[in-house]
């Protein structure tokens, strides 16, 4: 343990163990880091209701980029940079949402399909669920479904065969259904 982490939990050791594939060390690290992340996010997004969403995005990002952590360096600045990045992203989303929103005084009628609207609004949950997929499935889903590439283009971009892409997309959708529910 080094520098600014002195006196804190054994972040570096846990991260090094997680990088080596130790699942328990990673769960312990995330559990101990959770209140710290919540405080950091609360400070940056005071009064906003999506704080827990951003906390979850921080944990997912930490999971995806855990290979970039160097155990010889302090952990908290690394974590703080990820928190700052996700909060900035959330801020950009807010700005985008405000720009896309028009104030309407009287709304004579609205779209009846409430369920469809609910699903459309839950893109953050979808992104979080996607981040939990294995790398190959996430990549395949992102290229084929989100970026709307053809199988041939996605194959070139990812280096996966078209057959493997089809299987990965199928499995990813099945897994997402399991995570997000019916």
């Amino acid at each position: 343990m080094t520098g600014q982490d002195v006196g804190d939990p054994q972040w570096s050791d846990w991260m090094a163990a997680a990088q080596a594939g130790d699942q328990q060390a990673f769960v312990r690290l995330l559990s101990v880091a959770l209140p710290i992340v919540r405080r950091m996010v609360a400070k940056r997004r005071q009064g906003l209701r999506d704080q827990e969403d951003v906390v979850q995005e921080v944990l997912l990002t930490l999971h995806v980029v855990r290979h970039t952590y160097d155990p010889a360096r302090p952990f908290l600045p690394w974590l703080a940079a990820i928190v700052a990045h996700r909060c900035a992203d959330a801020g950009r989303r807010d700005t985008h949402r405000v720009r896309q929103t028009s104030n309407i005084d009287d709304l004579p009628e609205t779209i009846g399909a409430v369920e469809t609207n609910m699903l459309a609004m839950d893109s953050a949950a979808l992104h979080r669920a996607m981040a939990t997929l294995p790398e190959g499935q996430r990549k395949a889903l992102e290229l084929v479904k989100l970026r709307e590439m053809s199988l041939s283009e996605a194959s070139t971009a990812s280096g996966m065969s078209e057959g493997a892409l089809k299987v990965a997309v199928h499995r990813a959708i099945k897994a997402l259904k399991g995570i997000l529910g019916p």
Binding site: Q19, G21, V27, L30, L34, R66, I179
Partner: peptide, 23 residues
Amino acid sequence: MNTEDLIAQLGRQVVPVKRLAPP
């Protein structure tokens, strides 16, 4: 999904990764 469930799920997906070398 609540955050504690997410942590458990992320834990289950941990596999060894190749650490990024210093710049």
